[in-house]
Computed example of a mutant assay.
Amino acid sequence: MLELSLPVLLMLFLAAALAGWVDAVVGGGGLLLVPALLLGLPQHAPAYALGTNKATAIAGTSFAAVTYARRHPVDVRLALRFGVLACVSSAVGASFATAVSKEVLQPLIMVLLLAVALFVVLRPSFGTQDSGRVASRRRGALALLVAGAGVGFYDGLLGPGTGTFLIIAFVGLLHMTMLSASATAKVVNVGTNLGALVAFSFHGTVLWQLAAAMAVFNIAGSWVGAHMALRRGSGFVRVVLLVVVAALVSRLAYDQWWG
């Protein structure tokens, strides 16, 4: 049994609950949970933080996905199609996690996130209203490539911000509202978490007992976040998305130049 002090456990449980809330609304809970695990488990290799994060997050994400599906219309067939591809891509990404230089990828991710934030700020109506437009087959195929294969691979490789990228892809390419995109992203995110978790489990870098305890708090946070998003609508999701993007960019910048 992993022995941790009470203050460390409380910190990890709080981080798990907050991460569940963020993931349920807009994604990006790994921004909170991975650093917390790295801080709380200094005696373990970073891969244990990544693996334990996936084992914790998949519980809250699955709960949020069910909550959204019950309260908001979700195209289950579309979400599952993306989710299966994302699961496979995430497993591949996790397998390559130690072979790719994060120092090269992080600046590119920061630029992409800043472009996303600027786009959302300059277009206040982006994702807040149903346009009534139906995505063409070409846009559907592009969305499958970007959100299914691309974002899935990224989640296994690095992780933080996966839900955010999925929402932007669904809104921009499939003309969903922020709320519909967030609901669909939860189903897909279950797939990305599952694929990465299988890979990390194969390498033995998951602390299952700790993850099980943290999952209880992650589910509680997800329950609150999902109900708040459903009650407050797409405008609320949009605001949280911008906050998460700003925090994610700040974290990546810190890791890149001062971490």
Results as ranks from 00 to 15, higher is better:
46 P>V: 00
65 A>W: 08
20 G>Q: 14
45 A>H: 15
63 F>G: 03
65 A>C: 08
49 A>T: 11
41 L>S: 11
31 L>Y: 01
40 G>R: 09
41 L>C: 11
35 P>N: 02
23 D>S: 15
42 P>Q: 08
33 L>S: 14
20 G>L: 04
29 G>T: 13
66 V>Q: 05
27 G>C: 06
53 N>E: 07
66 V>K: 04
70 R>G: 05
29 G>A: 04
61 T>E: 05
49 A>H: 08
72 H>T: 01
66 V>A: 11
47 A>Q: 15
51 G>K: 02
46 P>Q: 04
56 T>Q: 15
28 G>M: 01
28 G>Y: 02
40 G>C: 12
25 V>Q: 01
65 A>I: 13
45 A>D: 15
49 A>G: 07
47 A>H: 14
55 A>N: 09
71 R>G: 01
69 A>W: 10
26 V>T: 14
38 L>A: 11
50 L>N: 03
32 L>Q: 03
68 Y>W: 08
62 S>P: 02
30 G>C: 09
63 F>H: 03
31 L>V: 15
42 P>G: 10
63 F>T: 14
28 G>V: 00
61 T>R: 02
60 G>D: 11
67 T>A: 12
38 L>S: 08
30 G>I: 14
27 G>S: 09
58 I>T: 13
68 Y>P: 06
26 V>K: 00
24 A>M: 13
37 L>G: 10
52 T>F: 02
41 L>T: 09
70 R>L: 12
48 Y>N: 08
37 L>M: 10
52 T>K: 04
20 G>V: 10
56 T>V: 03
31 L>F: 05
32 L>C: 02
29 G>D: 07
41 L>N: 08
31 L>W: 01
39 L>H: 14
53 N>M: 04
64 A>R: 05
26 V>G: 08
25 V>W: 01
69 A>R: 08
21 W>V: 00
70 R>H: 09
36 A>I: 14
42 P>V: 11
22 V>W: 12
48 Y>A: 07
26 V>E: 06
63 F>P: 00
61 T>D: 06
51 G>F: 10
67 T>S: 13
70 R>C: 03
45 A>F: 05
65 A>K: 09
23 D>V: 00
65 A>G: 05
66 V>I: 15
61 T>Q: 05
71 R>M: 02
